[in-house]
Design a protein around this nucleic acid. Sequence first.
DNA 1: CTAGGATCCTGTCAGC
DNA 2: TGCTGACAGGATCCTA
Length: 284
Amino acid sequence: MPELPEVETIRRGLTKFLNGVKITKIKILCDKSFIGPKEVAINQKIKAINRRGKALLIDLENGITLMIHLRMTGQLIFRGDENFAGGHPTDSFVNELPDNQTRVIIELENGTLFFNDQRKFGFIKVLETVEVENDKFIKSLAKEPWDMTFAEFKENLMHHKSAPIKATILDQKVIAGVGNIYADEALYYAQIHPSYATGMLKDAQIEKLLEGIRNVMQASIDSGGSTMKTYVKADGTKGDYLRLFAKVFRREGEPCERCGTEIIKTRVAGRGTHICPNCQKEGR
DNA sequence: CTAGGATCCTGTCAGC
DNA sequence: TGCTGACAGGATCCTA
């Protein structure tokens, strides 16, 4: 999924259910999915839940932090008096758990948190809270979109002058939290072709792109991200949270909201890419 | 140093 | 039906 808005949505949701709650047991079903000694987290209360880029950081009272990265297919599903689910949206949000994609089970005083991950790219990692900032991934992460100035963004971009702009903004060292959905959405917003060479961008385009990244992510957070609520609507039918804010992502064949031209799907930087071929012309 | 491709892993879907 | 290859909301490692 799990790009910045989805992780932020999970952070907010889990904070509501897990803050101040004690972890009683951790069951690891897939060794690859849990890095470090689980014992240090047992019988510890959750003190705070933070986020950096796409990484979720669960701080415990004893100075331990559980860093969770969902990568492509991770999901966190809480079952208790109330239920909450976020991450890669699949039927596991509502199915009986554990299921065949459950990798770690964290039992708490007030319920159970399931870490599900079809492709096993994601992980939970045990760190000392004071060492989080020295973690290789966290350390190399650029600033959050809302903390980054135009000048910083431009400087980071210009380390990749010949790369396609889409590849550049997917680089977490350039700006934190952008993934395949928001890259496409932000480039559509700024009317820049994803293949355009980064070094060719004008200041006005860079400005618009940063604005686009912020706006599309904020719109997703405001719409509730990919949660159980957006996955299953109140009447029990399935929703699609992408439709709440996405203008191009998975909308190939539909008319562009701005000009009516049919949105197409293509391939840039090795990733599926959605554009309006009229609003985002090659070579600009 | 950057750029681009392969790689980790499992499941699904389109096309024979 | 059964097989095959492509692809998937991410990041790292390897090579040029």
